[in-house]
Design a protein around this nucleic acid. Structure first.
Length: 126
DNA sequence: TGGTTGACTAAGT
DNA sequence: CACTTAGCCAACC
């Protein structure tokens, strides 16, 4: 924990997975939003790359698109249409590789999770 | 040890 | 309004 790790033992990738895993069903977010939530707003590229390395089934990578709502990462799934199908399965409408009503479906972790942090103490409250 | 890459983003032309 | 350029940061070779 001297060079790569700045504050935590887990890697930057691990943090990405944690955030992506918390994306609600039927919602989507952007690489930049995740990167911003992690504190490195300019390293949006690494977010996508993290998903590319992991390929975990538990990580809904299909819910992560670019800021335009374009399925830029669809080519990294099993089939180019898999990502679109997964999103459509969640009630999203995809047209021309773009998510319709993206603004409404957008889920910003730095915003949503930030709000939760203020009230997250309720989890311990019992 | 250092240069290249990349599922991005913002700004410029 | 669409394409081009540059910046960015961490992993990889």
């Amino acid at each position: 924990m001297s060079k790569s790790n700045r504050s935590q033992n887990i890697s930057f990738f691990e943090r990405v997975y944690e955030v992506v895993r918390q994306i609600p069903y039927g919602r989507v977010t952007s690489y930049g939003a995740i990167a911003r939530y992690l504190g490195t707003g300019q390293s949006a590229r690494m977010v996508g790359w993290a998903l590319n390395v992991c390929n975990h089934a538990a990580i809904p990578a299909h819910r992560v698109v670019n800021r335009n709502g374009l399925l830029t990462g669809k080519h990294h799934f099993g089939t180019p249409l898999l990502m679109q199908q997964l999103l459509e399965n969640e009630g999203l409408i995809i047209e021309d590789d773009r998510i319709l009503n993206f603004h409404e479906r957008f889920w910003d972790p730095s915003k949503e999770l930030s709000s939760l942090n203020k009230f997250c103490h309720n989890t311990k409250n019992d």
